[in-house]
């Protein structure tokens, strides 16, 4: 039976060795490793110009980011896949930031639905119809890729089209701070 045990430990060792990514969590770093960003360039990082896009909302209306800026103080884009975390984040935004910043436009980007109709159904079944969010259907994950986003990613763009925030929503306090600092 010792050979069985040896096989187990060997298998365990091989598994651990093959998974190098775990080191980041076993010994987490708190250093600030954000790359320096050159202003005036277009990209997903804070300080860059926001990549422009056009998506359909769940009523079939076309929304182009650049056409929104002249009318608002800023834009918040939240990436949603209709999960409990997304629901918690969006509900938190709905009760805190949306009422506090009436001149900011809030978009929820649905990147998991194949069609505008699917996105509409998800918006309704999750209770976000008329919530203060305009839900956009990113049916080909184009905007998801442009902003290097995933579930919970929250992007703030000021009226000049510069990205002020691009990170996880977390508890919403960072979003609150960034929105308060918008010119």
């Amino acid at each position: 039976m010792f050979s069985v045990r040896k096989c187990f430990w060997l298998l365990l060792l091989l598994t651990l060795v093959s998974c190098g990514g775990m080191i980041d969590d076993l010994n987490p770093s708190g250093s600030d490793d954000r790359p320096v960003v050159q202003s005036g360039t277009t990209g997903p990082s804070v300080g860059q110009n926001a990549p422009d896009f056009t998506l359909s909302d769940t009523l079939g209306n076309s929304v182009t980011l650049s056409s929104v800026f002249p009318t608002v103080q800023g834009v918040v884009i939240y990436f949603a896949m209709w999960c409990p975390i997304c629901d918690a984040h969006m509900s938190n935004m709905q009760s805190t930031q949306i009422p506090s910043f009436p001149n900011v436009r809030f978009y929820a980007v649905d990147y998991v639905s194949a069609t505008v109709a699917d996105a509409r159904n998800a918006e309704i079944s999750n209770g976000f119809l008329g919530s203060g969010f305009t839900v956009l259907a990113d049916t080909h994950q184009t905007v998801l890729g442009l902003y290097q986003a995933t579930m919970g990613t929250t992007v703030v763009i000021d009226r000049t089209g510069v990205i002020r925030m691009n990170e996880d929503y977390k508890d919403g306090s960072r979003l609150q701070t960034v929105l308060s600092g918008l010119p």
Partner: peptide, 23 residues
């Protein structure tokens, strides 16, 4: 509990990659 899984704080690109909590 050891954070040997892939967490949101690792070098991943999507929430779909996650297999652990990271704590």
């Amino acid at each position: 509990l050891l954070p040997t899984g892939i967490s949101p704080y690792d070098d991943v690109h999507s929430s779909f990659d996650v297999t652990g909590r990271g704590f």
